[in-house]
Design a protein around this nucleic acid. Structure first.
Length: 560
RNA sequence: CGGGGAGUGGCGCAGCCUGGUAGCGCAUCCGGCUGGGGGCCGGAAGGUCGCAGGUUCAAAUCCUGUCUCCCCGACCA
Protein backbone atom coordinates (compact mmCIF):
# COMPACT_ATOMS: atom_id res chain seq x y z
CA UNK A 1 0.00 0.00 0.00
CA UNK A 2 1.89 3.03 -1.19
CA UNK A 3 -0.16 6.17 -1.30
CA UNK A 4 1.87 9.22 -2.13
CA UNK A 5 -0.15 11.31 0.31
CA UNK A 6 1.51 9.42 3.12
CA UNK A 7 4.88 8.61 1.56
CA UNK A 8 8.13 10.48 2.12
CA UNK A 9 9.07 11.55 -1.39
CA UNK A 10 10.43 15.09 -1.10
CA UNK A 11 10.73 16.24 -4.71
CA UNK A 12 12.42 19.51 -5.56
CA UNK A 13 11.84 21.78 -8.48
CA UNK A 14 15.45 22.94 -8.43
CA UNK A 15 18.54 20.77 -8.32
CA UNK A 16 21.13 21.39 -5.58
CA UNK A 17 23.07 24.50 -6.58
CA UNK A 18 26.44 22.77 -6.71
CA UNK A 19 25.41 19.57 -8.46
CA UNK A 20 26.93 18.84 -11.84
CA UNK A 21 26.22 15.22 -12.67
CA UNK A 22 22.80 14.35 -14.08
CA UNK A 23 22.30 11.51 -11.62
CA UNK A 24 23.25 13.75 -8.70
CA UNK A 25 20.73 16.40 -9.69
CA UNK A 26 17.90 14.05 -10.55
CA UNK A 27 18.25 11.63 -7.67
CA UNK A 28 18.12 14.53 -5.23
CA UNK A 29 15.29 16.27 -7.07
CA UNK A 30 13.26 13.07 -7.30
CA UNK A 31 13.50 12.58 -3.56
CA UNK A 32 15.64 9.43 -3.72
CA UNK A 33 18.74 10.53 -1.82
CA UNK A 34 19.84 13.25 0.58
CA UNK A 35 23.33 14.35 1.44
CA UNK A 36 24.71 14.07 4.96
CA UNK A 37 28.30 15.17 4.32
CA UNK A 38 30.96 14.94 1.64
CA UNK A 39 30.53 11.52 0.09
CA UNK A 40 27.95 10.51 2.68
CA UNK A 41 24.40 9.93 1.55
CA UNK A 42 21.12 8.72 2.96
CA UNK A 43 18.75 6.77 0.78
CA UNK A 44 15.16 7.92 1.23
CA UNK A 45 12.39 5.35 0.90
CA UNK A 46 11.94 5.46 -2.89
CA UNK A 47 15.69 5.56 -3.46
CA UNK A 48 16.20 2.63 -1.18
CA UNK A 49 13.68 0.64 -3.18
CA UNK A 50 15.80 1.22 -6.28
CA UNK A 51 18.94 0.24 -4.42
CA UNK A 52 17.29 -2.91 -3.11
CA UNK A 53 16.05 -3.86 -6.54
CA UNK A 54 19.62 -3.76 -7.76
CA UNK A 55 20.67 -5.76 -4.72
CA UNK A 56 17.99 -8.33 -5.44
CA UNK A 57 19.18 -8.88 -8.99
CA UNK A 58 22.79 -9.17 -7.90
CA UNK A 59 21.86 -11.61 -5.17
CA UNK A 60 19.87 -13.85 -7.51
CA UNK A 61 22.65 -14.08 -10.05
CA UNK A 62 25.42 -14.59 -7.54
CA UNK A 63 23.38 -17.23 -5.73
CA UNK A 64 22.85 -18.85 -9.11
CA UNK A 65 26.56 -19.54 -9.52
CA UNK A 66 26.59 -21.30 -6.20
CA UNK A 67 28.00 -18.56 -4.00
CA UNK A 68 27.04 -18.54 -0.34
CA UNK A 69 25.84 -15.32 1.28
CA UNK A 70 27.13 -14.35 4.70
CA UNK A 71 27.95 -11.15 6.59
CA UNK A 72 31.22 -9.78 7.92
CA UNK A 73 31.76 -6.75 10.15
CA UNK A 74 32.78 -3.32 8.92
CA UNK A 75 35.17 -2.68 11.80
CA UNK A 76 38.30 -4.80 11.89
CA UNK A 77 41.31 -5.15 14.17
CA UNK A 78 44.21 -3.34 12.51
CA UNK A 79 46.43 -6.36 13.03
CA UNK A 80 45.06 -8.32 10.05
CA UNK A 81 45.57 -5.38 7.76
CA UNK A 82 49.13 -5.03 8.97
CA UNK A 83 49.74 -8.66 8.13
CA UNK A 84 48.72 -8.18 4.51
CA UNK A 85 50.62 -4.92 4.28
CA UNK A 86 47.55 -2.83 3.60
CA UNK A 87 47.44 -0.88 6.84
CA UNK A 88 49.33 1.98 5.23
CA UNK A 89 46.75 2.66 2.50
CA UNK A 90 45.72 6.31 2.71
CA UNK A 91 42.09 5.56 1.87
CA UNK A 92 41.80 3.24 4.87
CA UNK A 93 39.93 4.80 7.77
CA UNK A 94 41.78 4.15 11.01
CA UNK A 95 40.51 4.55 14.55
CA UNK A 96 41.10 3.41 18.10
CA UNK A 97 38.78 1.96 20.66
CA UNK A 98 38.61 3.16 24.27
CA UNK A 99 41.58 1.06 25.27
CA UNK A 100 43.68 2.47 22.48
CA UNK A 101 43.57 -0.64 20.29
CA UNK A 102 43.94 0.11 16.60
CA UNK A 103 40.96 -0.63 14.38
CA UNK A 104 40.17 0.01 10.76
CA UNK A 105 36.96 0.45 8.80
CA UNK A 106 36.83 -2.03 5.96
CA UNK A 107 37.44 -0.92 2.38
CA UNK A 108 36.88 -4.51 1.31
CA UNK A 109 36.93 -7.87 3.04
CA UNK A 110 39.78 -9.92 1.62
CA UNK A 111 41.54 -9.99 4.98
CA UNK A 112 38.59 -11.09 7.04
CA UNK A 113 37.16 -13.64 4.66
CA UNK A 114 40.61 -15.16 4.15
CA UNK A 115 41.14 -15.32 7.89
CA UNK A 116 37.98 -17.38 8.27
CA UNK A 117 38.90 -19.62 5.41
CA UNK A 118 42.40 -20.11 6.82
CA UNK A 119 40.88 -21.35 10.07
CA UNK A 120 38.35 -23.64 8.48
CA UNK A 121 39.76 -25.15 5.33
CA UNK A 122 42.05 -28.16 5.81
CA UNK A 123 41.86 -30.28 2.72
CA UNK A 124 41.53 -30.08 -1.03
CA UNK A 125 38.21 -31.81 -0.39
CA UNK A 126 36.96 -28.55 1.19
CA UNK A 127 37.50 -26.64 -2.05
CA UNK A 128 36.32 -24.88 -4.12
CA UNK A 129 33.66 -22.48 -2.88
CA UNK A 130 32.57 -18.87 -3.14
CA UNK A 131 31.52 -16.62 -0.27
CA UNK A 132 29.90 -13.23 -0.58
CA UNK A 133 28.14 -10.54 1.32
CA UNK A 134 26.54 -7.16 0.91
CA UNK A 135 28.09 -4.78 3.35
CA UNK A 136 29.12 -1.21 3.90
CA UNK A 137 32.52 -0.19 2.65
CA UNK A 138 34.37 2.81 4.02
CA UNK A 139 36.96 4.67 2.01
CA UNK A 140 38.58 7.95 2.86
CA UNK A 141 38.43 9.21 -0.70
CA UNK A 142 40.51 12.26 -1.51
CA UNK A 143 37.61 13.62 -3.49
CA UNK A 144 34.09 12.28 -3.26
CA UNK A 145 31.96 13.57 -6.10
CA UNK A 146 28.85 13.44 -8.22
CA UNK A 147 26.19 12.33 -5.75
CA UNK A 148 26.36 8.60 -5.16
CA UNK A 149 28.80 7.98 -8.00
CA UNK A 150 31.84 8.31 -5.75
CA UNK A 151 31.20 8.23 -2.02
CA UNK A 152 33.16 7.55 1.13
CA UNK A 153 30.64 5.03 2.39
CA UNK A 154 28.69 2.68 0.19
CA UNK A 155 27.24 -0.78 0.02
CA UNK A 156 29.08 -3.30 -2.07
CA UNK A 157 28.49 -6.88 -2.98
CA UNK A 158 31.87 -8.47 -2.68
CA UNK A 159 32.43 -12.13 -3.36
CA UNK A 160 35.55 -14.19 -2.90
CA UNK A 161 36.37 -17.44 -4.62
CA UNK A 162 38.63 -20.09 -3.12
CA UNK A 163 40.21 -22.65 -5.39
CA UNK A 164 43.05 -25.11 -5.17
CA UNK A 165 44.94 -23.82 -8.18
CA UNK A 166 45.10 -21.28 -10.96
CA UNK A 167 42.94 -23.41 -13.20
CA UNK A 168 40.21 -23.45 -10.60
CA UNK A 169 40.54 -19.70 -10.20
CA UNK A 170 40.07 -19.21 -13.93
CA UNK A 171 36.84 -21.22 -13.76
CA UNK A 172 35.50 -19.28 -10.76
CA UNK A 173 36.43 -16.05 -12.49
CA UNK A 174 34.66 -17.02 -15.67
CA UNK A 175 31.51 -17.90 -13.74
CA UNK A 176 31.56 -14.45 -12.15
CA UNK A 177 32.16 -12.83 -15.50
CA UNK A 178 29.04 -14.49 -16.87
CA UNK A 179 27.00 -13.68 -13.77
CA UNK A 180 28.02 -10.04 -14.01
CA UNK A 181 27.01 -9.95 -17.64
CA UNK A 182 23.56 -11.26 -16.68
CA UNK A 183 23.28 -8.75 -13.83
CA UNK A 184 23.99 -5.67 -15.91
CA UNK A 185 21.82 -6.99 -18.71
CA UNK A 186 18.91 -7.50 -16.31
CA UNK A 187 19.46 -4.05 -14.84
CA UNK A 188 18.87 -2.59 -18.27
CA UNK A 189 22.25 -0.90 -18.45
CA UNK A 190 24.34 -0.22 -21.46
CA UNK A 191 27.62 -1.78 -20.41
CA UNK A 192 30.76 -3.56 -21.48
CA UNK A 193 33.58 -5.38 -19.84
CA UNK A 194 37.05 -4.08 -20.32
CA UNK A 195 40.57 -5.07 -19.47
CA UNK A 196 41.84 -3.20 -16.47
CA UNK A 197 44.95 -2.53 -14.48
CA UNK A 198 45.82 -5.13 -11.88
CA UNK A 199 47.48 -2.38 -9.89
CA UNK A 200 50.00 -2.79 -7.15
CA UNK A 201 48.31 -5.95 -5.90
CA UNK A 202 49.64 -7.77 -8.90
CA UNK A 203 47.20 -10.48 -9.70
CA UNK A 204 46.54 -12.62 -12.71
CA UNK A 205 44.02 -10.58 -14.61
CA UNK A 206 41.14 -8.19 -14.06
CA UNK A 207 38.12 -6.81 -15.80
CA UNK A 208 36.08 -3.76 -15.09
CA UNK A 209 32.43 -3.59 -15.99
CA UNK A 210 31.76 -0.17 -17.38
CA UNK A 211 28.55 1.73 -17.93
CA UNK A 212 29.16 4.56 -20.38
CA UNK A 213 27.87 7.92 -19.21
CA UNK A 214 28.97 11.53 -19.22
CA UNK A 215 29.60 11.66 -15.48
CA UNK A 216 31.86 8.62 -15.60
CA UNK A 217 35.28 8.94 -14.07
CA UNK A 218 36.99 6.38 -16.23
CA UNK A 219 37.98 6.66 -19.82
CA UNK A 220 37.66 3.61 -21.96
CA UNK A 221 39.27 2.98 -25.32
CA UNK A 222 36.81 1.26 -27.62
CA UNK A 223 37.03 -0.30 -31.04
CA UNK A 224 35.14 -3.12 -32.66
CA UNK A 225 35.93 -6.09 -30.46
CA UNK A 226 38.22 -4.09 -28.20
CA UNK A 227 37.53 -2.40 -24.88
CA UNK A 228 40.16 -1.39 -22.37
CA UNK A 229 40.51 1.18 -19.66
CA UNK A 230 42.83 3.89 -20.98
CA UNK A 231 44.98 3.11 -17.95
CA UNK A 232 46.07 -0.08 -19.70
CA UNK A 233 44.97 0.38 -23.31
CA UNK A 234 47.49 -0.21 -26.08
CA UNK A 235 47.03 0.78 -29.69
CA UNK A 236 48.96 1.55 -32.83
CA UNK A 237 49.74 5.23 -33.07
CA UNK A 238 48.72 7.31 -36.02
CA UNK A 239 51.80 7.76 -38.22
CA UNK A 240 53.54 11.10 -38.28
CA UNK A 241 55.39 12.69 -41.17
CA UNK A 242 59.01 13.21 -40.20
CA UNK A 243 61.33 15.76 -41.79
CA UNK A 244 64.17 14.55 -44.01
CA UNK A 245 66.95 12.76 -42.10
CA UNK A 246 70.28 14.42 -41.27
CA UNK A 247 73.69 12.94 -40.85
CA UNK A 248 73.95 14.15 -37.29
CA UNK A 249 71.90 16.11 -34.77
CA UNK A 250 71.97 19.81 -35.54
CA UNK A 251 71.42 22.50 -32.90
CA UNK A 252 68.71 25.05 -33.52
CA UNK A 253 68.01 28.20 -31.50
CA UNK A 254 64.62 28.13 -29.79
CA UNK A 255 64.68 31.05 -27.37
CA UNK A 256 62.09 30.71 -24.61
CA UNK A 257 60.27 27.88 -26.40
CA UNK A 258 59.56 25.32 -23.73
CA UNK A 259 56.40 23.74 -25.10
CA UNK A 260 55.87 21.28 -27.92
CA UNK A 261 53.51 23.70 -29.66
CA UNK A 262 56.01 26.55 -29.63
CA UNK A 263 58.87 24.45 -30.97
CA UNK A 264 56.85 22.62 -33.60
CA UNK A 265 55.35 25.92 -34.73
CA UNK A 266 58.70 27.67 -34.95
CA UNK A 267 60.38 24.82 -36.82
CA UNK A 268 57.46 24.04 -39.06
CA UNK A 269 57.23 20.38 -38.11
CA UNK A 270 54.23 18.47 -36.70
CA UNK A 271 54.16 18.01 -32.91
CA UNK A 272 54.64 14.27 -33.51
CA UNK A 273 58.06 14.98 -34.99
CA UNK A 274 59.26 16.05 -31.57
CA UNK A 275 60.34 13.84 -28.72
CA UNK A 276 59.08 14.81 -25.30
CA UNK A 277 61.06 13.92 -22.19
CA UNK A 278 59.37 13.06 -18.91
CA UNK A 279 62.02 12.48 -16.24
CA UNK A 280 60.96 10.37 -13.27
CA UNK A 281 62.58 9.12 -10.12
CA UNK A 282 62.03 5.38 -9.80
CA UNK A 283 62.05 3.58 -6.45
CA UNK A 284 65.33 1.77 -6.02
CA UNK A 285 66.67 2.91 -9.35
CA UNK A 286 66.92 6.68 -9.45
CA UNK A 287 66.38 8.99 -12.36
CA UNK A 288 64.99 7.65 -15.63
CA UNK A 289 64.05 9.73 -18.66
CA UNK A 290 60.85 8.58 -20.30
CA UNK A 291 60.59 9.73 -23.90
CA UNK A 292 57.40 9.82 -25.97
CA UNK A 293 56.39 11.45 -29.21
CA UNK A 294 55.56 15.15 -28.92
CA UNK A 295 51.89 14.58 -29.68
CA UNK A 296 51.62 11.79 -27.11
CA UNK A 297 51.27 11.77 -23.36
CA UNK A 298 52.84 9.50 -20.78
CA UNK A 299 50.38 7.12 -19.18
CA UNK A 300 51.51 6.86 -15.60
CA UNK A 301 49.81 3.55 -14.92
CA UNK A 302 51.45 1.94 -17.94
CA UNK A 303 54.74 3.53 -17.01
CA UNK A 304 54.53 2.16 -13.48
CA UNK A 305 53.76 -1.29 -14.84
CA UNK A 306 56.60 -1.06 -17.36
CA UNK A 307 59.05 0.01 -14.66
CA UNK A 308 57.76 -2.60 -12.27
CA UNK A 309 58.15 -0.07 -9.48
CA UNK A 310 56.64 3.08 -8.05
CA UNK A 311 57.95 6.39 -9.33
CA UNK A 312 57.38 10.09 -9.03
CA UNK A 313 57.99 12.89 -11.51
CA UNK A 314 61.46 14.34 -11.01
CA UNK A 315 61.59 17.69 -9.29
CA UNK A 316 62.76 20.70 -11.34
CA UNK A 317 65.98 20.99 -9.33
CA UNK A 318 66.76 17.30 -9.87
CA UNK A 319 66.25 17.75 -13.60
CA UNK A 320 68.37 20.90 -13.69
CA UNK A 321 71.17 19.22 -11.77
CA UNK A 322 71.34 15.89 -13.61
CA UNK A 323 70.04 16.60 -17.10
CA UNK A 324 69.57 20.16 -18.21
CA UNK A 325 67.36 23.24 -18.02
CA UNK A 326 63.62 22.59 -17.76
CA UNK A 327 61.85 22.78 -21.09
CA UNK A 328 64.98 22.01 -23.07
CA UNK A 329 65.89 18.51 -22.00
CA UNK A 330 66.36 15.58 -24.33
CA UNK A 331 67.87 12.11 -24.61
CA UNK A 332 71.08 13.07 -26.42
CA UNK A 333 74.25 13.43 -24.39
CA UNK A 334 72.84 12.56 -21.00
CA UNK A 335 73.90 9.66 -18.82
CA UNK A 336 70.39 9.23 -17.45
CA UNK A 337 68.87 5.94 -18.70
CA UNK A 338 66.27 6.43 -21.45
CA UNK A 339 62.96 4.62 -21.65
CA UNK A 340 61.65 5.14 -25.18
CA UNK A 341 57.99 4.67 -25.99
CA UNK A 342 57.10 1.97 -28.50
CA UNK A 343 55.26 4.47 -30.70
CA UNK A 344 58.47 6.30 -31.58
CA UNK A 345 59.23 5.00 -35.08
CA UNK A 346 62.72 5.19 -36.59
CA UNK A 347 63.58 8.59 -38.05
CA UNK A 348 64.84 12.04 -37.23
CA UNK A 349 63.18 13.95 -34.40
CA UNK A 350 63.44 17.31 -32.71
CA UNK A 351 64.48 17.07 -29.05
CA UNK A 352 65.68 19.34 -26.29
CA UNK A 353 69.43 19.99 -26.41
CA UNK A 354 69.94 19.99 -22.64
CA UNK A 355 71.00 23.62 -23.05
CA UNK A 356 68.83 26.65 -22.47
CA UNK A 357 67.04 28.09 -25.54
CA UNK A 358 68.25 25.34 -27.83
CA UNK A 359 66.86 22.18 -29.42
CA UNK A 360 68.38 19.55 -31.67
CA UNK A 361 66.91 18.38 -34.95
CA UNK A 362 67.61 15.22 -36.84
CA UNK A 363 67.95 13.19 -33.65
CA UNK A 364 67.67 9.48 -34.37
CA UNK A 365 67.09 6.88 -31.70
CA UNK A 366 69.78 4.18 -31.73
CA UNK A 367 72.26 6.27 -33.67
CA UNK A 368 72.21 9.23 -31.27
CA UNK A 369 71.17 7.71 -27.96
CA UNK A 370 70.73 4.33 -26.35
CA UNK A 371 67.43 3.32 -24.83
CA UNK A 372 65.14 0.65 -23.48
CA UNK A 373 61.74 0.23 -25.13
CA UNK A 374 58.32 0.07 -23.50
CA UNK A 375 54.73 0.95 -24.25
CA UNK A 376 54.16 3.83 -21.86
CA UNK A 377 51.99 6.29 -23.75
CA UNK A 378 48.36 7.03 -23.32
CA UNK A 379 46.31 5.96 -26.33
CA UNK A 380 44.62 8.71 -28.31
CA UNK A 381 41.36 8.75 -30.21
CA UNK A 382 42.10 7.70 -33.77
CA UNK A 383 44.83 5.24 -32.86
CA UNK A 384 44.11 1.80 -34.24
CA UNK A 385 43.78 -1.71 -32.91
CA UNK A 386 44.02 -4.35 -35.61
CA UNK A 387 43.43 -1.59 -38.13
CA UNK A 388 40.24 -0.38 -36.46
CA UNK A 389 40.18 3.16 -35.09
CA UNK A 390 39.51 3.53 -31.39
CA UNK A 391 37.40 6.13 -29.70
CA UNK A 392 37.56 7.22 -26.07
CA UNK A 393 34.47 7.26 -23.96
CA UNK A 394 33.67 8.23 -20.38
CA UNK A 395 32.21 5.45 -18.27
CA UNK A 396 31.45 4.61 -14.69
CA UNK A 397 32.80 1.42 -13.22
CA UNK A 398 29.86 -0.57 -11.92
CA UNK A 399 31.72 -3.78 -11.14
CA UNK A 400 35.11 -5.34 -11.21
CA UNK A 401 36.52 -8.82 -11.03
CA UNK A 402 40.04 -9.69 -10.09
CA UNK A 403 42.23 -12.78 -10.07
CA UNK A 404 44.05 -12.30 -6.79
CA UNK A 405 46.08 -15.50 -6.80
CA UNK A 406 47.72 -16.10 -3.44
CA UNK A 407 48.20 -12.43 -2.53
CA UNK A 408 46.09 -12.84 0.62
CA UNK A 409 46.16 -16.53 1.30
CA UNK A 410 49.92 -16.54 1.78
CA UNK A 411 50.28 -13.82 4.42
CA UNK A 412 47.19 -15.07 6.23
CA UNK A 413 48.08 -18.74 6.05
CA UNK A 414 45.08 -19.91 4.06
CA UNK A 415 46.34 -23.28 2.85
CA UNK A 416 45.08 -26.80 2.23
CA UNK A 417 46.62 -30.25 2.03
CA UNK A 418 46.61 -31.78 -1.43
CA UNK A 419 46.25 -35.49 -2.26
CA UNK A 420 49.93 -35.99 -1.56
CA UNK A 421 49.62 -34.38 1.86
CA UNK A 422 51.55 -31.30 0.77
CA UNK A 423 50.49 -27.89 2.02
CA UNK A 424 49.38 -25.56 -0.77
CA UNK A 425 48.17 -21.96 -0.79
CA UNK A 426 44.56 -21.35 -1.73
CA UNK A 427 44.00 -19.44 -4.98
CA UNK A 428 41.59 -16.56 -4.62
CA UNK A 429 39.56 -14.20 -6.71
CA UNK A 430 37.58 -11.16 -5.60
CA UNK A 431 34.56 -9.68 -7.28
CA UNK A 432 32.81 -6.41 -6.47
CA UNK A 433 29.61 -4.69 -7.53
CA UNK A 434 28.20 -1.38 -6.31
CA UNK A 435 24.39 -1.28 -6.39
CA UNK A 436 24.42 2.48 -5.84
CA UNK A 437 26.51 2.93 -8.93
CA UNK A 438 24.19 0.69 -10.88
CA UNK A 439 21.31 2.96 -9.86
CA UNK A 440 23.21 6.16 -10.66
CA UNK A 441 24.44 4.79 -13.98
CA UNK A 442 20.88 3.86 -14.92
CA UNK A 443 19.82 7.43 -14.20
CA UNK A 444 22.72 8.83 -16.21
CA UNK A 445 21.87 6.63 -19.17
CA UNK A 446 18.11 6.99 -19.17
CA UNK A 447 17.38 10.55 -18.10
CA UNK A 448 15.62 13.03 -20.35
CA UNK A 449 14.49 16.62 -19.91
CA UNK A 450 11.59 15.60 -17.68
CA UNK A 451 13.59 13.47 -15.27
CA UNK A 452 14.50 9.84 -14.79
CA UNK A 453 13.25 7.06 -17.07
CA UNK A 454 14.14 3.95 -15.10
CA UNK A 455 14.71 0.61 -16.69
CA UNK A 456 11.87 -1.63 -15.55
CA UNK A 457 14.07 -3.76 -13.32
CA UNK A 458 15.30 -0.86 -11.20
CA UNK A 459 12.32 1.50 -11.01
CA UNK A 460 11.20 2.28 -7.47
CA UNK A 461 7.68 1.26 -8.49
CA UNK A 462 6.37 -0.54 -11.54
CA UNK A 463 3.65 1.99 -12.21
CA UNK A 464 2.56 5.33 -10.86
CA UNK A 465 -1.17 5.86 -10.79
CA UNK A 466 -2.20 9.50 -10.98
CA UNK A 467 -5.75 10.30 -10.04
CA UNK A 468 -7.21 13.67 -11.02
CA UNK A 469 -10.15 14.44 -8.84
CA UNK A 470 -11.04 15.45 -5.35
CA UNK A 471 -11.46 13.05 -2.55
CA UNK A 472 -14.94 11.56 -2.71
CA UNK A 473 -15.22 11.97 -6.49
CA UNK A 474 -16.09 9.17 -8.88
CA UNK A 475 -12.57 9.37 -10.30
CA UNK A 476 -11.16 8.63 -6.88
CA UNK A 477 -13.42 5.66 -6.41
CA UNK A 478 -12.43 4.28 -9.80
CA UNK A 479 -8.75 4.88 -9.12
CA UNK A 480 -8.96 3.22 -5.71
CA UNK A 481 -10.42 0.16 -7.38
CA UNK A 482 -7.82 0.15 -10.12
CA UNK A 483 -5.08 0.46 -7.55
CA UNK A 484 -6.30 -2.64 -5.75
CA UNK A 485 -6.56 -4.60 -8.99
CA UNK A 486 -3.06 -3.65 -10.10
CA UNK A 487 -1.67 -4.59 -6.73
CA UNK A 488 -3.39 -7.94 -6.78
CA UNK A 489 -1.78 -8.62 -10.16
CA UNK A 490 1.57 -8.32 -8.43
CA UNK A 491 2.52 -4.86 -9.61
CA UNK A 492 4.21 -2.37 -7.30
CA UNK A 493 2.05 0.70 -7.57
CA UNK A 494 2.70 4.20 -6.36
CA UNK A 495 -0.69 5.87 -6.07
CA UNK A 496 -0.63 9.64 -6.31
CA UNK A 497 -3.70 10.42 -4.25
CA UNK A 498 -2.48 13.83 -3.15
CA UNK A 499 -4.75 16.83 -3.30
CA UNK A 500 -2.61 18.53 -5.92
CA UNK A 501 -3.08 19.88 -9.41
CA UNK A 502 -2.50 17.77 -12.49
CA UNK A 503 0.62 19.68 -13.45
CA UNK A 504 2.28 18.93 -10.13
CA UNK A 505 1.40 15.28 -10.32
CA UNK A 506 2.54 14.77 -13.90
CA UNK A 507 5.79 16.61 -13.31
CA UNK A 508 6.55 14.60 -10.18
CA UNK A 509 5.69 11.32 -11.86
CA UNK A 510 7.99 12.01 -14.77
CA UNK A 511 10.73 13.17 -12.46
CA UNK A 512 10.54 9.92 -10.48
CA UNK A 513 10.41 7.96 -13.70
CA UNK A 514 8.43 4.77 -13.15
CA UNK A 515 8.09 2.92 -16.48
CA UNK A 516 4.34 3.48 -16.72
CA UNK A 517 2.24 6.41 -15.63
CA UNK A 518 -1.50 5.88 -15.45
CA UNK A 519 -3.85 8.83 -15.44
CA UNK A 520 -7.43 8.58 -14.36
CA UNK A 521 -9.55 11.73 -14.45
CA UNK A 522 -13.09 12.72 -15.20
CA UNK A 523 -12.46 12.81 -18.92
CA UNK A 524 -11.16 9.28 -19.02
CA UNK A 525 -13.80 8.02 -16.67
CA UNK A 526 -16.59 9.37 -18.88
CA UNK A 527 -14.96 7.88 -21.98
CA UNK A 528 -14.34 4.60 -20.21
CA UNK A 529 -10.61 4.93 -20.85
CA UNK A 530 -7.40 4.92 -18.91
CA UNK A 531 -4.43 6.90 -20.16
CA UNK A 532 -1.08 5.14 -20.02
CA UNK A 533 2.15 6.99 -20.57
CA UNK A 534 5.27 5.01 -21.36
CA UNK A 535 7.93 6.94 -19.51
CA UNK A 536 10.65 6.11 -22.02
CA UNK A 537 9.80 8.33 -24.94
CA UNK A 538 6.77 9.71 -23.05
CA UNK A 539 4.39 8.20 -25.55
CA UNK A 540 0.76 8.14 -24.43
CA UNK A 541 -1.90 5.61 -25.27
CA UNK A 542 -5.25 4.59 -23.85
CA UNK A 543 -6.69 1.29 -22.77
CA UNK A 544 -10.34 0.53 -21.98
CA UNK A 545 -11.11 0.97 -18.30
CA UNK A 546 -12.79 -2.37 -18.43
CA UNK A 547 -9.95 -4.83 -17.94
CA UNK A 548 -7.45 -2.00 -17.59
CA UNK A 549 -5.38 -3.70 -14.88
CA UNK A 550 -4.58 -6.71 -17.06
CA UNK A 551 -3.81 -4.45 -20.03
CA UNK A 552 -1.43 -2.42 -17.87
CA UNK A 553 0.28 -5.52 -16.57
CA UNK A 554 0.80 -6.65 -20.13
CA UNK A 555 2.22 -3.29 -21.19
CA UNK A 556 4.53 -3.35 -18.20
CA UNK A 557 5.91 -6.72 -19.17
CA UNK A 558 6.74 -5.37 -22.62
CA UNK A 559 8.52 -2.28 -21.39
CA UNK A 560 12.38 -2.28 -21.42
C1' C B 1 47.55 17.70 -1.95
C1' G B 2 47.36 22.10 -5.81
C1' G B 3 43.86 25.61 -8.09
C1' G B 4 38.95 27.91 -8.10
C1' G B 5 34.13 28.85 -5.84
C1' A B 6 30.25 28.88 -2.03
C1' G B 7 27.99 28.98 3.14
C1' U B 8 21.70 34.29 4.36
C1' G B 9 14.14 30.35 6.36
C1' G B 10 12.93 23.57 3.42
C1' C B 11 15.02 24.61 -2.02
C1' G B 12 17.06 28.40 -5.43
C1' C B 13 19.01 33.26 -4.83
C1' A B 14 19.67 38.97 -3.83
C1' G B 15 21.75 42.13 -0.10
C1' C B 16 28.18 42.67 1.30
C1' C B 17 31.84 46.83 -2.71
C1' U B 18 29.85 52.08 0.18
C1' G B 19 28.31 49.12 8.13
C1' G B 20 22.36 51.49 10.33
C1' U B 21 14.63 47.90 10.60
C1' A B 22 17.20 40.88 6.70
C1' G B 23 14.61 40.67 1.31
C1' C B 24 12.76 37.96 -3.39
C1' G B 25 10.86 33.41 -6.10
C1' C B 26 9.31 28.54 -5.10
C1' A B 27 7.78 25.33 -1.23
C1' U B 28 4.89 25.32 3.72
C1' C B 29 0.27 26.55 6.95
C1' C B 30 -5.09 28.64 7.06
C1' G B 31 -9.53 30.13 3.99
C1' G B 32 -11.66 30.26 -0.81
C1' C B 33 -11.72 29.41 -6.12
C1' U B 34 -9.80 26.02 -9.92
C1' G B 35 -9.41 20.83 -11.51
C1' G B 36 -5.84 17.02 -17.89
C1' G B 37 0.63 19.89 -17.54
C1' G B 38 4.23 22.99 -11.77
C1' G B 39 -3.25 27.48 -11.77
C1' C B 40 -5.57 32.00 -9.08
C1' C B 41 -7.07 35.34 -4.81
C1' G B 42 -6.59 36.62 0.37
C1' G B 43 -4.17 35.79 5.02
C1' A B 44 -0.01 33.59 8.04
C1' A B 45 4.24 31.25 10.00
C1' G B 46 9.37 30.44 9.45
C1' G B 47 16.22 33.03 9.51
C1' U B 48 21.50 33.22 16.34
C1' C B 49 23.12 35.53 8.00
C1' G B 50 28.41 28.32 9.06
C1' C B 51 31.32 29.07 13.78
C1' A B 52 34.78 31.94 16.98
C1' G B 53 37.24 36.30 17.92
C1' G B 54 38.21 41.43 16.65
C1' U B 55 37.16 46.70 14.86
C1' U B 56 32.83 50.01 15.68
C1' C B 57 27.86 53.74 19.02
C1' A B 58 26.29 49.91 15.47
C1' A B 59 28.52 44.00 11.64
C1' A B 60 25.09 39.50 7.03
C1' U B 61 28.29 43.69 5.38
C1' C B 62 35.02 45.45 7.47
C1' C B 63 39.47 42.42 9.69
C1' U B 64 41.66 37.67 11.64
C1' G B 65 41.12 32.69 12.47
C1' U B 66 38.42 28.29 11.85
C1' C B 67 34.83 24.63 10.10
C1' U B 68 31.95 22.77 6.16
C1' C B 69 30.43 21.96 1.15
C1' C B 70 31.07 22.10 -4.27
C1' C B 71 33.90 22.24 -8.96
C1' C B 72 38.71 21.28 -11.89
C1' G B 73 43.21 18.62 -11.41
C1' A B 74 46.33 15.18 -8.73
C1' C B 75 44.85 10.81 -6.36
C1' C B 76 41.43 6.66 -6.25
C1' A B 77 44.82 -2.16 -4.98
Amino acid sequence: MTRLSGYLLPTEREPPADAEAVSHKLMVRAGLIRQVGAGLWSWLPAGWRVHQRAVGIVREEIDAIGAQEMLMPVMHPAEVWRRTGRYGIDELFKLQDRRGADLVLAMTHEEIVTLHVAQVVRSYRDLPFVLYHFSIKERDEPRPRAGVLRTREFIMKDSYSFDRDLEGLHASYDRHFDAYARIFERCGLEWYACESDVGMMGGFGAHEFMAPCAAGENEVALADGYAANVEVASADAQPVELPAPRDAPEPVETPGMTTVEQVSGALGVPPGALLKAFPVVVDGRGLVMTVVRGDHRVNEVKLRNALGAEFRPARPEEVAESIGPGGFIGPVGTDVPILLDDAVAPGGYVTGANEADRHLRGVEPERDFAFERADVRRVEAGDTVGGRAIRLEAAIEVGNIFKLGTRFSEPLGATYLDEAGAEQPIWMGSYGIGPARIAAAAVEQSADEAGIAWPRALAPFDVELVVLGKEGSDERAAADGLYDELTSLGLDVLYDDRDAGPGDKFADAELLGCPLRLTLGRRGLEAGELEVQLRRGREKRTVPLDGAAEAVAELWRAVP
